[in-house]
Each structure stands twice: as structure tokens, then as C-alpha cells.
């Protein structure tokens, strides 16, 4: 095998390995979803989802994240086609949208804690906070990753290795939006029904 072929094989392996890591992350979230499902009615006399969730707010949050999944797709495509400025703009847009999403989430958490409905209040709230915050933590890691990739795109020569890392970031971000579909559906929509 020539060195070029070998390097190509290495890149393919990294893509597969990262994909498989995402699959293991599915199991992590599955454990938290299973926990939420088991504890969703254990409100210990406190408020339930229907009492707490602001549906409009959550819808906006969801749209923000969904849009960011679109923008990062554009960034990956632009970069792979060699359009550096385009890719940078889409990446920054993704970061802004992701940051807005996270800020909205923190705002929601803060409001709940302030009114006495923090994670200590009941098992339901414990599982709600943990599931949503774990997703938020992943988003935060994604934001950090966007910063690193954006810096490299802007200042250094954007080699095929960086392109590859950007494509993995894209996978990560899309995956997080997919997890959010289920959080939105099960925690907020179903959990928010009276």
C-alpha cells in the first residue's frame, strides 16, 4: 500500500470510529431516556412537565438548533468545495445559533431553579435536568470544537486533515440535533401534555 493509500485508509477508519463513538453516545442518551421514562411521573407532590414547560419557548429553541444543523451542513459542504469564506460564515452562524440555544436552555434552567423547581425538587425534575443538561454539555463541547476548527480554517492552511475534522464535527452536530428531536418529542411534547 502506498503512503497516500494508507493515509486515505486512516481517514476512513477515523470516520468509522467516530461514527461508532456516536452510536455509543446513543446508548448513553438511551440510559437517560429510560430513566426519564421511569421517573416521569415521580413529581413528589411538585410540578409536572405540563405545569412547567413553556411550549413556545421550546419550539423556538428547537428551531434554533434545527437551523444550526442546516448551517453546519452548509459549512462542511462549502469547505469541501474549497470556499473558505463561505465556510467561515456558515461556521460562525452555527456557533451563534448554538450559543443562542444554550443560552435559552440556561435561561430556562435558571428560571426553574429560582422558583424552587430545581433538580432537587423531585425525581422527575432530576431526570429532566440531567437529560437536557447532558445534551447541553455535548452542545458546549461542540461549540468549543467549532472555535478550534474556525481558528484553523481562518489562520492556518486548511488541509485535508482539517477538512476531515470539520466533517466529523458536522456528524457530531447533526447527531445532537437528532437527539434533540427525541428530547423535544418525549420530554417536552409528551411530558408537557396534561
Amino acid at each position: 500500500m502506498s503512503r497516500a493509500e494508507e493515509e486515505h485508509a486512516i481517514v476512513q477508519r477515523k470516520s468509522l470510529g467516530f461514527w461508532i463513538y456516536l452510536m455509543t453516545d446513543c446508548l448513553l442518551f438511551a440510559s437517560l431516556f429510560a430513566t426519564f421514562a421511569a421517573l416521569r411521573n415521580n413529581t413528589f407532590g411538585g410540578p409536572s412537565g405540563a405545569d412547567l414547560f413553556d411550549m413556545q419557548f421550546v419550539l423556538i429553541e428547537t428551531m434554533v438548533l434545527l437551523t444550526s444543523s442546516f448551517t453546519i451542513g452548509m459549512a462542511v459542504l462549502g469547505a469541501s468545495r474549497g470556499y473558505k469564506k463561505q465556510a467561515l460564515i456558515w461556521l460562525i452562524a452555527t456557533f451563534v445559533l448554538g450559543a443562542i440555544f444554550l443560552a435559552m436552555e440556561l435561561f430556562e434552567f435558571h428560571a426553574l431553579v429560582e422558583e424552587g423547581n430545581g433538580w432537587q425538587r423531585s425525581a422527575f425534575l432530576s431526570s429532566y435536568f440531567t437529560l437536557v443538561a447532558t445534551h447541553g454539555l455535548h452542545i458546549a463541547v461542540g461549540l468549543l470544537w467549532i472555535i478550534v476548527v474556525t481558528i484553523r480554517l481562518w489562520r492556518f492552511k486548511f488541509k485535508h486533515t482539517d477538512l476531515h475534522r470539520l466533517s466529523l464535527l458536522g456528524l457530531f452536530w447533526h447527531f445532537l440535533d437528532i437527539i434533540w428531536i427525541f428530547i423535544f418529542s418525549f420530554v417536552y411534547l409528551i411530558g408537557g401534555m396534561s
Partner: peptide, 14 residues
């Protein structure tokens, strides 16, 4: 495969 295990875990737990 991952989805199969996810479903087994969540459905089994419930």
C-alpha cells in the same frame, strides 16, 4: 444495531 439495543434498553426498562 445501536437502535436495536437502544429499544431493548428503553422498552425493557419501562
Amino acid at each position: 444495531l445501536a437502535i436495536i439495543f437502544v429499544v431493548m434498553l428503553v422498552a425493557g426498562t419501562i
